[in-house]
Simulated assay, not measured.
Amino acid sequence: MTIWEMLAVFAAGISAGTINTIVGSGTLITFPVLLATGLSPVTATVSNALGLVSGAISGVIGYRAELVGQRRRVIRLSIVAAIGGISGAILLLTLPETAFETIVPILVALALVLVVLQPRISRAVQRRRAAKGTTDTHPDGGPLLLIGLLFASVYGGYFTAAQGILYVALMGMLLHDTLQRINAVKNVLAAVVNSIAALFFVFVADIDWTAVVLIAIGSAIGGQVGAKVGRKLSPTALRAIIVAVGMVAIVQLLLRRYG
């Protein structure tokens, strides 16, 4: 890797760490850069997953205030995310690379629709509960959220791009909480999935350690930047950024699949 390629990977790591903490999809920045340095798609995916672990942890630390009071929820959802993450990592090394590429843009598009409609749907659900004389909601989202997060985490362990959007969409629909607190939980789940997949990859996959170190340092810096920026955004602004990033993700995924 030349010095200019190393600088490009480092800069991509900072950008990815920032955007992952705010919304997700940072892999869509780092992955093409790694491919441009000559890495194979699988080696790039594996090295990227390892490098982004520090950024995910940095984002969790940056959002620690929003995690207060969510310990039980985080533990329960993290167990599901870990199971999905290791499953996705195994699939990455056993399935053809094109296996998920057709369905992923559809999943991201659906997630964006849910993010946009989430306030309206939440109000409708609250009105329905009020009509029935109850406002109780399952603190962890119930079985539907667990199943949805399991599949989103399988995808996250496989490729990681846009998994944060899927998490926010699912939790926004099924949890009665603020978008900032949901975003904080999203960062924890992403850290769990990245870490469990990375641990698996260390023992069984080919890794470019130069890329890992550069992305790790860059994404750790970006995680702190993203936390400072993200918590200042209003729910509307945060939702708009999620949609914008998601649209870019869909275009890149489609170009990668059909371009």
Rank of each mutant, 00 (worst) to 15 (best):
70 Q>K: 13
242 I>S: 08
116 V>L: 15
252 Q>T: 00
179 L>F: 08
121 I>G: 09
194 N>Q: 12
235 P>Y: 12
106 I>T: 07
182 I>G: 01
67 L>H: 06
51 G>W: 04
43 T>F: 02
235 P>H: 14
74 V>Y: 05
166 L>H: 06
70 Q>E: 15
165 I>H: 04
162 A>M: 01
142 G>M: 13
247 M>R: 02
209 W>Y: 14
47 S>R: 03
193 V>A: 11
31 F>M: 01
13 G>E: 06
46 V>H: 04
238 L>Q: 10
102 T>Y: 15
38 G>P: 01
129 R>S: 11
145 L>E: 11
225 V>M: 11
256 R>K: 15
180 Q>H: 14
124 A>R: 11
70 Q>C: 08
195 S>R: 02
248 V>K: 01
227 A>C: 08
162 A>P: 00
258 Y>H: 09
173 M>F: 07
253 L>S: 09
62 G>V: 06
259 G>Y: 11
91 L>K: 05
60 V>D: 05
15 S>I: 11
226 G>A: 10
120 R>Y: 12
29 I>K: 06
242 I>Q: 13
227 A>E: 03
161 A>R: 00
218 G>S: 14
55 G>C: 07
235 P>L: 13
245 V>M: 06
140 D>R: 03
235 P>S: 12
75 I>P: 06
250 I>W: 10
219 S>C: 10
167 Y>T: 01
193 V>K: 01
196 I>S: 07
108 V>M: 09
29 I>F: 15
68 V>H: 12
200 F>P: 01
164 G>F: 03
153 S>P: 01
212 V>H: 09
6 M>I: 00
160 T>V: 15
222 G>V: 07
80 V>D: 04
237 A>I: 00
76 R>V: 12
194 N>F: 12
150 L>A: 14
183 N>Q: 03
144 L>T: 15
218 G>H: 12
246 G>K: 02
254 L>Q: 10
144 L>P: 08
196 I>M: 13
76 R>H: 10
126 Q>Y: 03
82 A>S: 05
88 G>W: 02
196 I>D: 01
147 I>A: 15
205 A>Y: 02
37 T>L: 06
76 R>Y: 13
169 A>W: 05
216 A>P: 02
170 L>K: 04
45 T>I: 00
157 G>E: 11
92 L>F: 05
254 L>T: 09
59 G>F: 01
147 I>H: 10
190 A>H: 03
33 V>A: 07
173 M>N: 01
108 V>D: 08
156 G>T: 05
49 A>Q: 11
231 R>E: 15
16 A>L: 06
89 A>P: 04
220 A>P: 03
98 T>C: 05
196 I>C: 12
43 T>L: 04
44 A>W: 11
36 A>F: 10
64 R>Y: 05
230 G>L: 09
83 I>G: 03
179 L>A: 09
204 V>G: 09
